[in-house]
Design a protein around this nucleic acid. Structure first.
Lengths: 278, 278
DNA sequence: CGCGTTCTTGACTCCTATCAAGGAACGTGG
DNA sequence: CCACGTTCCTTGATAGGAGTCAAGAACGCG
């Protein structure tokens, strides 16, 4: 049912990304946030410290509670991050696509908040804290203090702080959207919103926006959207019968993008929660 | 039913805070995040630029979409922040207690994301952007560039950026908790978690932790927790019949704090959403 | 080919939203 | 001081969306 050619094209592209050892040759150079975070300098000065790590499915790149020491950029493959609450309940907090940064959640507390796990075989750039600091300090006046926090160790490295603020700000607005989705949207709208977001992010990562392979299981989707697994499955079927999508296990084709958008706009779900302004 | 003496004590304290005109005399000095944000320098150098503004109930301090120009610190009273989505649906995102900072949500995009509204008569410290920048620049080497973003205008002002990162980091972890609450908790657990948090924040603001007046309406609570107003009301009644709390309209007394905690720990609500780790 | 995993589908239940009505508090004006 | 409307909160009855339980199908893997 699905056309696999496009997938192959991107596999090639991704391999090209993998084969190149230096950041400047990386196909993701222009969109790579690690450049933003200072690895453009890194590359020429201390390149050897940017590790390109390959990860197998279900392997954790970093684990909740571990000491924060690096940030990561997805080179290829897909990842999910989650945390487990005191009662042992898992909450998937995000999915990471090629080009995305993760690991910054540890920067404030000094330990990673989330565990980040590969959904399939993939690779990441690991940019260690010391490397990051080293880079900026070399191009700025060094400072003597040894404050406990990352950003305090490198007061002159305002670039990092700026990128940090930018990334955190993005995180906050993304989280806000999720709060709204979980609180005020019915199941169908939650899923359609999710599909549209995934579609956009797939496109951003260099895939087709209307036809791709879902990188995560139904369980992951249901956990992320806080729905029962069966509900998600039923909704996929429903969207298919509405000719909005064509889905076969993880292969997804969006047949009617405007229709999908319309579902989101029209469906007003629960009305108390949807209370309008007076 | 409720003992009002404690309230009066704090009214006095709050009045003391209001009467003092300088930040160093303010009773909240030690806990004031504006100090952290640089107003300790402000106070001695450019004090006149910290405005102490009194706000009447339902008055907006800043509005969603307005150009970002200041951050605020609550001196007295209580505030709520909310945004209205494209479909005109309101989402209360937070409540602000004396000592809390708000308004930073505008720093990245340049416009405030949330509208912040007084729940009763209160007062805030308005610390304008220019004042903040001025303060740091005067104590550091000035920089020539005029980048569009706030933090780029003051590269040397790493203190601000650090505080910013800290405040944003707090916001993120608070938002994560809300996501978890909305997605994985049943109504009762959502409310008990909320009550416990309010209790702690009231204490932090100088009130009693087990007896206080709820500053927000049932409508605000229900909107924040994404529940029907009637559900919230019923749950209050239920908690009262369980002798966990005593509630009469907005006057709340927590009779059994461990019991309240136990409710949160024990109640496992929906089990699919509460899926444990394998 | 058998087995585990993942996904789908059906039947049923339950939590919470919705609709509806009434009571308590508050402000205002007579 | 009391009637009055308004707002806020409570309580009851009902309905519906999504969770839960259960079984079977499709796929991947050794």
């Amino acid at each position: 049912m699905m056309n696999n050619n496009t997938q192959n094209v991107y596999l090639l592209n991704r391999d090209r990304g993998l084969q190149s050892d230096s950041c400047s040759n990386c196909m993701r150079n222009s969109q790579c946030p690690s450049i933003e975070m200072g690895s453009s300098q890194l590359e020429s000065t201390a390149y050897s410290k940017v590790l390109h790590k390959t990860v197998k499915p279900q392997m954790a790149v970093c684990s909740s509670g571990d000491k924060f020491d690096s940030i990561y950029v997805v080179r290829s493959g897909f990842f999910k991050s989650y945390f487990i609450d005191t009662a042992g309940i898992m909450q998937v907090t995000n999915f990471h696509f090629p080009g995305d940064v993760f690991g910054i959640d540890g920067i404030e507390s000094g330990v990673y908040q989330d565990t980040v796990e590969a959904l399939d075989t993939g690779s990441v750039c690991k940019i260690s804290l010391s490397t990051l600091l080293q880079t900026t300090n070399s191009s700025n006046t060094a400072r003597a203090d040894n404050a406990p926090h990352v950003y305090e160790e490198s007061t002159s490295g305002a670039n990092q702080l700026q990128s940090l603020v930018r990334i955190m700000s993005r995180t906050i607005s993304r989280d806000r959207k999720l709060i709204f989705a979980l609180g005020k949207m019915c199941a169908l709208r939650r899923l359609t919103t999710f599909l549209l977001e995934i579609s956009q992010r797939m496109e951003h990562s260099g895939y087709q926006q209307d036809e791709f392979r879902l990188c995560m299981s139904r369980t992951d989707i249901s956990n992320y959207l806080c729905l029962a697994l069966e509900t998600v499955s039923r909704l996929f079927t429903q969207l298919q019968s509405m000719k909005i999508i064509a889905v076969e296990r993880r292969d997804l084709k969006i047949l009617d993008m405007p229709g999908l958008q319309r579902l989101i706009d029209d469906d007003h779900g629960r009305t108390t929660a949807f209370e309008k302004t007076g």
